[in-house]
């Protein structure tokens, strides 16, 4: 989806706020929102990619101006409404007018400590087909995306790069956002900034992690 979220290389957003105070949370509500998102029950089909796609569809003006954790909660609110777990009135009023969710008992505080010792959520998957590319392969990214979720940013589409590492087979986000789990080879590829933005006197490299179906042999 060519949405407002796809910010790489866009111009006109001004300077970076380098004077921001260094602290985990800048307000109580930020901390609360962060904790809620980590602690809340989630339906099995609310994958990370579906969550990201939901956030990408926030009104563009809101996306650029509403606080970040506020957008996290709005994305989960939209997922709850979309899944029939709650309606908009309930979200706005902060009270349940219907039955409890059928997502089971919410996780208790012990789950926080347990998560430290447990293996983190894995996105790599077994894959028995050959990988199309190897380190050193010249690749060209697809020129277009599609209306769904994708992790191929607009600024790199249709450009030539070189595979510098083969990462393994990872869950393909474009499908995962639609509720389909399928793994695909994933590579880190390097692109010359002078190719991406010619004539700007650039000499750095930009690296992206890209799935095989984003790429063609070059």
């Amino acid at each position: 989806m060519d949405g407002i979220h796809d910010l790489g290389g866009r111009q006109g957003f001004g300077k970076v706020d380098v004077d921001e105070k260094e602290e985990a949370f800048h307000s109580d509500w930020e901390a609360r929102a962060y904790g809620i998102v980590r602690a809340m029950s989630k339906a099995p089909d609310w994958t990370l990619d579906k969550f990201r796609f939901t956030r990408e569809q926030i009104d563009p003006a809101d996306y650029l101006t509403r606080p970040y954790y506020d957008q996290w909660l709005q994305a989960y609110a939209a997922l709850m409404v979309g899944s029939g777990v709650a309606n908009v009135d309930e979200i706005v009023n902060g009270h349940s007018a219907g039955p409890s969710s059928d997502l089971g008992t919410p996780r208790g505080p012990d789950s926080v400590v347990a998560e430290k010792g447990a293996a983190a959520v894995q996105f790599e998957r077994p894959y028995d087909k050959p990988f199309q590319f190897e380190v050193g392969s010249r690749v060209q990214t697809k020129p277009h995306a599609h209306k769904g979720h994708t992790r191929l940013p607009a600024y790199v589409r249709g450009h030539m790069g070189e595979v510098i590492e083969v990462r393994g087979a990872f869950i393909f986000p474009d499908d995962s956002a639609q509720g389909v789990e399928r793994a695909e080879p994933m590579y880190t590829a390097a692109f010359k900034a002078s190719d991406l933005w010619p004539g700007e006197g650039l000499n750095h490299l930009v690296h992206l992690d890209l799935w095989e179906s984003y790429l063609e042999p070059a």
Partner: peptide, 16 residues
């Protein structure tokens, strides 16, 4: 917004 979301999730049985 955060306050409303937290109380709703608790009532829905989705949050401790």
């Amino acid at each position: 917004r955060v306050k409303a979301m937290e109380s709703l999730l608790i009532e829905k049985g989705m949050l401790d």
